[in-house]
């Protein structure tokens, strides 16, 4: 049984259909990456899982139990198991609390009064390789990388089974980014955490994710193991996305596949395949609506998938 199973998840804000049916599963101890351009609904997916964004349709099962639409009172105990790492590392830390109270706040919220908060703060900071005296500092005294690590420490406080991480390395320098990814990889191995990571950095995905899903306009267009997707992208959008990854080598010969036009408006979704108007490989039959089909661990929503040899 999967730890997390999302099925047909839909979110609308008024007439704006932000999520139009998202399906994916994450096993215990697995890291799943959601990638896709800005506005594709990645953040909404994880916020809806955590109950921080509405979801009108579909199901979110955690440990086999339906958690979509639970009232706050019943969500709260679940948040021991599902932790969130927010996108803005400094902005997600209250400027008036010390680092020590920030990382131990989850214990207070959960009413775990028996804990020695000072000792817990020390333990958590050590776990993310920050010196214990940081407990008395304030967020403005931290660098971006240190604030990220505080975010990780806070997410780990209650020993969750699942971490939802929104752009955990955005804005970090490459050397610090490596440190954070190593830390996440290490914690996952030691604590058996499952993670859903949102990122648009494909180089990061390759090193942390077991499986990945590619989102476009509030749906998954393709899914598979990270290795398979990189080696053999079937959906034209996935291929455009992978080809857009700049190489740190001035002599790299990049074959770019350009997307045409702009992402369509969510208020006015195109008929048929929603990617058709921007797709460099669109065919006549693409005016029909493609269905989400899964086979052998791969998922795909495309009427004219690319063949392996095309993905040179």
């Amino acid at each position: 049984m999967s730890l997390l199973a999302v099925k047909g998840l839909q979110t609308s804000y008024g007439a704006v259909n932000v999520l139009a049916g998202v399906d994916f599963e994450v096993a215990a101890g697995e890291t799943y990456a959601l990638v896709g351009e800005s506005g594709s609904g990645k953040t909404t997916v994880i916020r809806a899982i955590a109950g921080l964004a509405p979801a009108q349709e579909g199901s979110v099962r955690f440990n086999g139990r339906e958690i979509r639409g639970l009232p706050e009172r019943r969500l709260r105990p679940l948040r021991k198991d599902i932790a969130m790492m927010f996108q803005d590392p400094v902005g997600s830390l209250s400027p008036r609390l010390t680092i020590g109270s920030l990382v131990t706040e989850p214990y207070r919220i959960q009413g775990m009064k028996d804990r020695d908060l000072q000792a817990e703060a020390k333990r958590l900071l050590e776990m993310v390789n920050l010196p214990a005296h940081f407990a008395s500092r304030y967020p403005y005294q931290l660098s971006g990388g240190q604030a990220r690590r505080v975010g990780v420490a806070r997410a780990l406080a209650l020993e969750p089974k699942l971490i939802l991480a929104d752009e955990p390395t955005a804005g970090l320098d490459v050397s610090v980014q490596g440190e954070l990814l190593n830390l996440l990889n290490d914690l996952r191995e030691r604590l058996g955490l499952a993670m859903v990571i949102i990122t648009h950095n494909l180089n990061v995905v390759r090193h942390v994710a077991d499986r990945m899903g590619i989102m476009y306009l509030g749906r998954l267009d393709e899914e598979g193991t990270t290795e398979d997707i990189f080696a053999d992208p079937r959906h034209p959008y996935t291929r455009c996305l992978l080809s857009a990854n700049p190489e740190p080598d001035p002599d790299a010969r990049l074959v770019r596949i350009a997307l045409r036009g702009e992402p369509p408006s969510l208020l006015n979704r195109p008929a048929g395949c929603e990617f058709r108007e921007r797709c460099p490989f669109a065919q006549q039959g693409c005016t029909r609506t493609p269905q989400w089909e899964t086979e052998g661990g791969r998922g795909l929503r495309c009427l004219a998938p690319l063949k392996s040899e095309q993905a040179a």
Partner: peptide, 21 residues
């Protein structure tokens, strides 16, 4: 040299430990 080594774009297969400075 270290900065270029740290860029995960260089490392094509999954690395358990990425280089840092």
């Amino acid at each position: 040299r270290r900065l270029i080594d740290c860029d995960p774009g260089h490392i094509k297969t999954r690395a358990r430990v990425l280089p840092t400075i």
